[in-house]
Simulated scan of single mutants.
Amino acid sequence: MKKLMLSTAIAAFAAGAAYAESHSVVRMGTEGAYPPWNFINDAGEVDGFERELGDELCARAELTCEWVTNEWDSIIPNLVSGNYDTIIAGMSITDERDEVIDFTQAYTPPDPSSYLAMDAGLDVTGAVIAAQAATIQAAYVAEQGWTLVEFPTPEETVNAVRNGEADAVLADKAYLEPFSGQDGLVLLERSEMIGGGVGVGVRESDGELKAALDAAIQSMKDDGSLNALIEKWEVASTW
């Protein structure tokens, strides 16, 4: 096991060194509005699970990284156009996204998406469901043929339930759980298994960067530090 951990660490360093030869800084793109995955803290800095994860991945790959925030609805186009080099923003790996960008291996497993509503007995199949635009949850609701209302930010989806614009919101459980019990909001028992786990998005042309991040993620899986980070932030089930 020690040999395996050492080999993945060496792979992360080697791949990172290859990328760093032609790139002085790796710009890590995130939304900064989806706690506990990513958010802006009181000091005005990117914080959360993915900030801590991203910093550790960069350290293991010996990459110099800086953080950039971008609104969710344009986060993929701005990666493709070169405004930053990665997306590390709670983005689930899907076939549709993989046609436009590339992904590392998943750094969290697929986790249930939950419903937050004002009525614990709500039948979601006949309800108006809010979801953040361009998410796997919005796509799921649309695929079911249910009534979907989309909003640019996750905060707006919760507010839509509070003010009666929607009957429930569908999102990652880790995001919705802190709202349960506030203002009469409750998590429903029903949940949905959608998405293929969460990974780092990169441009399809950045194979060296992908390899460096892949090796760093694998080294964190091998030594248990990734599970420890997932448990600390309570974002998903562990590996």
Rank of each mutant, 00 (worst) to 15 (best):
V186Y: 07
I217E: 06
G82F: 03
Y140E: 10
R27A: 11
E99H: 06
Y115W: 08
T147C: 06
I101K: 06
G145P: 02
G44T: 10
G145C: 07
L63S: 08
N227C: 08
A211N: 13
P112L: 04
A134W: 02
T108V: 13
A106M: 13
N38P: 08
A171V: 00
P152G: 02
G164S: 11
N159M: 11
K173F: 09
L4S: 15
M220C: 14
W67H: 12
E189F: 05
M91I: 11
G224K: 09
S237L: 13
W239C: 13
E56R: 15
K210V: 11
N38K: 13
F179S: 14
W233H: 14
P152R: 07
V25L: 14
N70D: 03
T94Y: 00
S7L: 08
A212H: 04
F151Q: 05
A216F: 03
C65H: 03
E150D: 08
K221R: 14
R27C: 07
A18R: 15
T135W: 09
A43N: 10
N38Y: 10
M28I: 10
L185T: 04
T125R: 10
W72K: 09
D42R: 07
G29Y: 03
G32Q: 05
V80K: 01
S81L: 00
T108P: 04
E99I: 06
Q137F: 08
Q137K: 06
N70V: 01
T30P: 02
E156S: 12
G90I: 01
I217S: 07
G197H: 01
S205V: 04
D167N: 09
M118A: 09
E150T: 06
A139W: 02
V169E: 05
W67K: 08
V198N: 04
D123I: 00
S191G: 04
E62G: 12
A89F: 00
A211E: 11
V161N: 06
L176P: 01
I136R: 06
D206L: 07
G181N: 15
M193L: 03
K232C: 12
V128C: 02
D183S: 15
A33L: 11
A127T: 05
H23V: 05
F49Q: 11
E165Y: 04
L116P: 01
K221L: 03
S113K: 10
P77T: 01
